[in-house]
Simulated assay, not measured.
Amino acid sequence: MILPRHGLISSRLHYFQTVARLGSIRRAAQALNVAPSAISRTIQHLEQELGAPLFERARQRLKLTSAGEILVYHAGASVAELDRARAFIDDLQGLRRGSVSIAAVESVARGLLPETLSRFWSRYPDVAVQVTTTGSQQAFEAVARGECDLAIAFDARPPKGTQRLAGANLRLGALVPPKHALAARRGVRLREFAAERVILSDASLTLGSSIEAAILGSGIELKPIAVTNSIHLMSAFAVRGHGVTFQTRVGVERELEEGELVFVPFNDPSLRPRKLMLIARGKAHLAAGPAALAAMLSEAIQRLDGR
Rank of each mutant, 00 (worst) to 15 (best):
residue 1 M to V: 10
residue 2 I to R: 12
residue 6 H to N: 06
residue 7 G to L: 02
residue 10 S to F: 10
residue 12 R to M: 10
residue 13 L to V: 04
residue 17 Q to Y: 06
residue 20 A to P: 08
residue 21 R to G: 08
residue 25 I to M: 15
residue 27 R to T: 06
residue 33 N to P: 01
residue 33 N to A: 14
residue 43 I to K: 03
residue 43 I to S: 04
residue 45 H to W: 10
residue 46 L to Q: 11
residue 47 E to F: 00
residue 49 E to V: 01
residue 51 G to A: 13
residue 54 L to N: 10
residue 54 L to D: 05
residue 57 R to L: 07
residue 63 K to D: 03
residue 66 S to P: 02
residue 67 A to N: 03
residue 69 E to F: 06
residue 72 V to F: 09
residue 75 A to G: 08
residue 85 A to G: 06
residue 86 R to Q: 12
residue 96 R to G: 01
residue 96 R to N: 02
residue 97 R to L: 07
residue 98 G to T: 00
residue 100 V to Y: 02
residue 100 V to M: 04
residue 101 S to D: 03
residue 103 A to Q: 01
residue 104 A to L: 13
residue 108 V to N: 09
residue 108 V to G: 10
residue 109 A to Q: 05
residue 112 L to E: 05
residue 113 L to A: 03
residue 116 T to K: 14
residue 119 R to D: 05
residue 121 W to M: 04
residue 125 P to D: 04
residue 125 P to G: 05
residue 126 D to F: 14
residue 127 V to A: 12
residue 129 V to E: 06
residue 130 Q to M: 09
residue 130 Q to P: 00
residue 132 T to Q: 12
residue 133 T to R: 12
residue 134 T to W: 02
residue 137 Q to D: 10
residue 141 E to Q: 14
residue 148 C to I: 06
residue 150 L to H: 07
residue 154 F to V: 11
residue 159 P to C: 08
residue 167 G to F: 12
residue 169 N to K: 08
residue 171 R to M: 04
residue 172 L to S: 04
residue 172 L to P: 00
residue 174 A to D: 07
residue 175 L to F: 07
residue 176 V to G: 09
residue 176 V to A: 10
residue 176 V to S: 06
residue 178 P to K: 15
residue 178 P to I: 15
residue 178 P to Y: 15
residue 178 P to C: 14
residue 178 P to N: 13
residue 182 L to S: 10
residue 183 A to P: 03
residue 194 A to S: 15
residue 195 A to M: 14
residue 197 R to H: 06
residue 198 V to T: 05
residue 200 L to N: 05
residue 200 L to F: 03
residue 202 D to M: 12
residue 208 G to K: 06
residue 210 S to I: 03
residue 211 I to Q: 04
residue 213 A to R: 14
residue 213 A to I: 02
residue 214 A to R: 14
residue 214 A to P: 00
residue 215 I to A: 10
residue 219 G to W: 15
residue 223 K to W: 04
residue 225 I to M: 14
residue 232 H to C: 08
residue 234 M to S: 05
residue 236 A to W: 06
residue 236 A to R: 09
residue 241 G to V: 13
residue 243 G to I: 12
residue 244 V to T: 03
residue 245 T to V: 04
residue 247 Q to H: 15
residue 251 G to W: 01
residue 254 R to I: 11
residue 255 E to I: 06
residue 255 E to W: 12
residue 259 G to N: 11
residue 262 V to S: 06
residue 266 F to E: 11
residue 267 N to L: 15
residue 267 N to S: 12
residue 268 D to Y: 06
residue 272 R to Q: 10
residue 272 R to G: 00
residue 274 R to C: 11
residue 275 K to E: 07
residue 277 M to G: 03
residue 278 L to M: 10
residue 279 I to C: 14
residue 279 I to S: 11
residue 279 I to G: 09
residue 282 G to Q: 08
residue 283 K to H: 11
residue 285 H to G: 13
residue 286 L to I: 05
residue 288 A to I: 00
residue 288 A to G: 13
residue 292 A to R: 01
residue 292 A to F: 03
residue 298 S to G: 07
residue 302 Q to T: 15
residue 306 G to V: 02
residue 306 G to D: 07
